[in-house]
Amino acid sequence: MQETRSPILQGTLDLMVLKTLEQMGPLHGYGIARRIEQVGQNALIVNQGTIYLCLVRLVQKQWITAEWGKSDNNRKAKFYSLTPAGEAQLAAETENWERISDVIGRVLQPATGS
């Protein structure tokens, strides 16, 4: 089981967090971590702690904002949501990712490339 899980590619965690917030709307750190694990079907090794470091970075860049609120089970939690700058960044990074993965896919499987 362990061997089939891959570490997250460097620099892609930001993209995943931004995408999660776009899809789910305002969400707390635990929710983001759970969501990424679920969507990745537990195939990614996510050190949940690193998500919080990623959130600090994204707040500093003003791509997301944070606000204290109440969770479903009435627990005090910090909710993160995407800013317009974050949306623009997400669009740009998504496009970039698609281009790169396309190129890498073609390099790795030349026969099916054309």
């Binding site: 707390h28 750190g29 635990y30 971590a33 949940q48 702690g49 919080y52 969770s71 627990r75 005090k76 939690a77 910090k78």
Partner: peptide
């Protein structure tokens, strides 16, 4: 506080 919330959840 955030980490504590995370652990509790």
């Amino acid at each position: 506080q955030e980490l504590a919330t995370h652990l509790a959840m």
